Simulated assay, not measured.
Amino acid sequence: MQYYHKPIMIKEVLNYLNVKEEGIYVDATLGGAGHFQEILKKAGEKGLVIGIDRDIESIENAKEKFKDNKNAIFVHDNFKNLKGILKDLNISSIDGILYDLGVSSYQLDKEERGFSYQKDAPLDMRMDTRQKLTARDVVNTYDKEELKRIIYEYGEERFAGRIANFIVERRKNKPIETTLELVEVIKDAIPAKARRKGPHPAKRTFQALRIFVNEELVGLEQAFKDAISLLKDGGRIVVISFHSLEDRIVKRLFNEFKKEGGLTYKLRILTSKPVVPEEEEIIGNPRARSAKLRAAEKFDVLK
């Protein structure tokens, strides 16, 4: 089954990535291959673009879609293993890398994956279906304090304690099996006044569970450091994030490498503040509303 992801801020991505013909680029979060496709066009027939994704459906879709492109390579793996991936491909350095973090539109839209709080499905939320831990496991077996920590830390949900308490009480009768069952528990936990304003009441809790289940923040900073070390002189890193936890990591790391001492390279920050989608794009794609793009260029301090 082929699917397509409408790439967020594609004009800005191509601008900051500064794709050159014959260059080597990595789309570290392939998804529906929307960004990948445009980078591939820019890189030309002599370029090479590598798409990485932990979701096998994404990889299989892209392999079928780009089967006639000899300059497209797809790897079913976690982008945190970038060094090993490139070593296996006999590639020592790259001209640019893109990260479009978070869950893809396809994963949200496919009900049985259990990412969406608007569709009834089994509580799954695994990006890589090979792993064992699911959101159902977390919701039904983790103790109240750990649930509170996860929901507060990864979802920045102020009612984390109440939600954790309501989850534990509800599962005493029977396990919470589906997304909409969990949504019902969350709505019951959040005071009516708070539910009437802001985003969907389940948004932050679902985000927290997804981040925890997929270990999205674990090793993220080291993954970016590995990518920066593999960039050529003048190579660029572009990161699109969708919540403050990711964005803080990117901002802190870019600033660290801007003044880094002891290394033979530094970063030149290309975005003094995060770039956000234009209003026209948000109207056409509401999921782009929370996106923030940061970009930086590596340069050799010895030159």
Rank of each mutant, 00 (worst) to 15 (best):
Q2H: 14
P7L: 12
M9E: 03
M9S: 02
I10D: 09
L14P: 01
L14M: 04
Y16D: 12
K20S: 10
D27I: 08
D27N: 04
T29Q: 06
G34D: 09
L40E: 05
A43W: 07
E45D: 13
K46R: 13
I50W: 14
I50S: 13
D53R: 06
D55F: 08
I56L: 15
I59W: 11
A62P: 04
A62D: 10
A62Q: 02
K67I: 03
K70Y: 03
V75Y: 15
D77V: 11
D77C: 14
K80C: 03
N81H: 15
L82H: 11
K83Q: 13
K87R: 15
L98N: 01
D100K: 06
L101P: 03
G102W: 08
Q107P: 09
Q107F: 05
G114R: 04
F115L: 01
Q118M: 14
K119V: 01
R136I: 01
V138S: 05
L147S: 07
Y152S: 10
E157L: 11
A164K: 00
K172H: 05
V185I: 13
K197P: 08
H200W: 10
F206G: 08
F206S: 08
A208R: 02
R210A: 07
E216R: 08
L230F: 12
L230M: 12
G235A: 00
V238W: 09
L245N: 12
K258F: 06
G261N: 15
L267H: 09
R268N: 15
R268Q: 14
P274I: 04
V276Q: 12
E278D: 15
P286N: 08
S290K: 00
R294P: 09
A295Y: 00
E297W: 04
V301N: 06
